[in-house]
Design a binder for these strands. Structure first.
Length: 231
RNA sequence: GGCUGACUUGC
């Protein structure tokens, strides 16, 4: 809160001295407001920036989009999204934020269709897109669809990273599909992603909670010989 | 110089 007052003071001094905040000033402040939960403040800054004829770029829009999603302001979210599409101010990060936001706000159908659209239109998914989609699908019970997304990405040799795999493993464990979880973990390094201790711990925990103690011990012994040593 | 994803266990 002290920092917040300091920022306000600096801001007022900036404005009083006729120093124009530039794109990056606005961008940093908007992000800061969003991250501290003050989306209204961020939107006010956005308005101020437009009035001052500093044109918001895709990073500013993305920060706002993420802010409204986290604040569950879905009406504002869709409005902003339309604006971004109409102005061509969106990129893969925008899609990642949107898909995550839709899943987080129980708009599962919308999240899935946004992903399908993106995918069909040859939007280039990055490893974060896969992480968001797989995590979202697992959290909402669409395990098989998540598995399909993962396998298809593997087949196309697309970038899947540790977050996609650990989400998938976590989802399978929580659904009691432990054998599949084990096989995903066993196979991931052959697809270019080394398991880390976080991923191994998720699986170990799943095995133990399911009382599969023998499997847990076998897996633990196997860890010692793989790249993921226990922490 | 500014934007997005896994959260196991313990604390």
């Amino acid at each position: 809160w002290r920092k917040f007052d300091e920022i306000l003071e600096i801001w007022q001094r900036l404005k009083k001295n006729d120093r124009k905040p530039d794109l990056f000033t606005y961008s940093s402040l908007i992000q800061g407001f969003c991250k501290s939960g003050n989306v209204e403040g961020a939107l006010a800054l956005y308005k101020d920036m437009v009035e001052s004829e500093v044109s918001p770029d895709v990073v500013v829009y993305n920060a706002l989009l993420d802010g409204v999603c986290r604040a569950s302001k879905m009406k504002e979210c869709f409005e902003l999204w339309d604006l971004m599409r109409n102005n061509g101010k969106h990129n893969v990060v925008s899609f990642n934020i949107m898909i995550r936001g839709l899943f987080e706000n129980q708009k599962v159908e919308e999240a899935i269709s946004m992903w399908d659209d993106f995918f069909d239109k040859n939007g280039t998914a990055d490893s974060i897109t896969y992480g968001v989609v797989i995590h979202g699908l697992c959290q909402t019970g669409y395990l098989n669809k998540a598995l399909r997304v993962l396998k298809e990405a593997e087949d196309r040799k697309e970038k899947l990273d540790i977050c996609s795999y650990s989400s998938m493993i976590n989802g399978l464990c929580r659904d009691g599909r432990l054998d599949e979880a084990i096989s995903i973990l066993d196979m991931m390094s052959s697809h270019g992603c080394q398991p880390n201790s976080h991923a191994c711990n998720i699986l170990l925990n799943g095995l133990i909670l399911a009382s599969k103690i023998d499997d847990a011990i076998r897996f633990f012994n196997g860890m010692l010989t793989k790249n993921c040593s226990p922490n």
